[in-house]
């Protein structure tokens, strides 16, 4: 039901997220290690948790991508947060619950969770 311009804006905001995945201009990127090692350690559940958490918070401007094994199999599942103009942060041994906290604390509030960090790279 669209009766006013505000109604239209509401629908737009809700639906915008669906489309933002179809443009390559996003500022924040989450990369999940999805090699055999990552998947065996539970990366799929991590991916699902991150997508779900981002969805709940309407954070459509975040790209979620996967990558292969980076060589740190022992620390899988690995989750990397990449922001333009900031060092990359890689978290290790992430499970679904920790993944949700990464979304809340790092992606939303911009605070690195030091205890899980495996490394950073400028």
């Amino acid at each position: 039901m669209v009766k006013t311009l505000e109604d239209l804006a509401k629908i737009k905001d809700k639906a915008k997220a669906t489309l933002s995945a179809r443009s390559a201009e996003q500022s924040t990127k989450v990369v999940i290690g999805m090699g055999t090692c990552g998947i065996a350690a539970g990366a799929r559940e991590v991916m699902a948790a991150i997508l779900d958490e981002l969805g709940k918070r309407n954070l459509a401007a975040v790209t979620v991508a996967q990558t292969g094994c980076v060589g740190l199999c022992d620390k899988e599942p690995l989750v990397e947060i990449i922001r333009s103009g900031k060092p990359k942060v890689m978290y290790g041994r992430i499970n679904a619950e920790r993944a949700r906290r990464i979304v809340a604390q790092d992606i939303v509030n911009d605070q690195i969770i030091g205890e899980w960090v495996v490394g950073t790279k400028a």
């Binding site: 809700k14 991916m47 969805g55 979620v64």
Partner: peptide, 8 residues
């Protein structure tokens, strides 16, 4: 809202 990591 549901997010997806890729749209095909």
């Amino acid at each position: 809202m549901r997010l997806f990591r890729a749209h095909v």
